Simulated assay, not measured.
Amino acid sequence: MECHRLQDVNNISGGSGSEYHFHHREKVNMMRKYFILALITLTVITNNVSAQTESSKQSSMMKMTMDHSHLPIAAPSNAPKPALSLSLTKDAMSGYNLHLQLARYQLMPPPEGVVSMSELMSATRNKETGFIEGHAHLYINGIKIQRVYGLDVHLPATHFKQGVNTVSVTLNNHGHMYWTVDEKKVVSTLYIDNTLPQLIKHQFDSFPVENTG
């Protein structure tokens, strides 16, 4: 009788040990699966971040390469010197109306049929007048807003803050480089205060248009 009881106890003990080892292996296998899954997820995230970073770098470099508005180009010494002045009035509905006064400058959009940007980087002159040609860039509070191909531009009120603001226009060649004369940028800037009855507080013209009338 004692032998049978001892054998039963051993059987029970052996069965419990096997069950313990089985569950332990299951837990280990599950932990391995979680670890592998976490490793794969981390690898995918790292690759995505690296790809996005590289794409952002390439995009920034491309923008820097294509943005020539911070580069000067000298007007030919034998070309008539361009002149630029600005005037600004409040619009009847909203915002402001900007008028460009130009002299000895051919304001126009870039020529059609240009294949590469390098073709636009040179100092081009109008064949009929001999004036240097190109377009203009509009800045409000130091931020570039748009290109300008005509003499009149409406400026939405959303571009302006309450108080003092600046409105600047530069003359640029077809490759967006800003024109210089005698090593000075051709630019006109208005300093305005939209809280005062007299809108324009100060005006700076590097090469002002002379009113002879």
Rank of each mutant, 00 (worst) to 15 (best):
M1H: 11
H4G: 14
V9E: 15
N10R: 12
N10Y: 15
N11C: 13
S13A: 15
G14A: 06
H24E: 14
R25G: 07
V28N: 14
V28S: 14
R32N: 09
R32L: 06
T43S: 15
N47Y: 07
S50W: 07
A51E: 15
K57T: 08
M61W: 08
M62S: 13
K63E: 13
T65D: 11
D67F: 10
H68I: 00
H70N: 12
P72L: 01
A75C: 11
N78V: 09
N78T: 15
A79Y: 02
L84H: 00
L88G: 00
K90R: 13
L98E: 01
L102N: 07
Q106F: 05
L107V: 05
L107E: 03
P111C: 05
P111V: 02
G113I: 01
V114I: 06
S116Q: 10
A123R: 00
K127Q: 12
K127T: 14
T129I: 01
G130E: 07
F131A: 11
E133R: 03
G134R: 00
H135P: 01
I140M: 03
G142L: 05
K144H: 11
I145G: 05
Y149M: 09
G150E: 09
H154T: 11
A157K: 15
K161Y: 08
K161E: 10
V164N: 06
S168G: 14
T170C: 09
T170S: 09
N172P: 02
H174R: 06
M177C: 10
W179G: 00
T180V: 02
L190F: 06
Y191C: 12
I192Q: 01
L196C: 13
I200E: 03
K201F: 08
K201Q: 15
H202D: 13
H202V: 12
H202P: 03
F204V: 12
E210C: 09
N211M: 11
G213A: 07
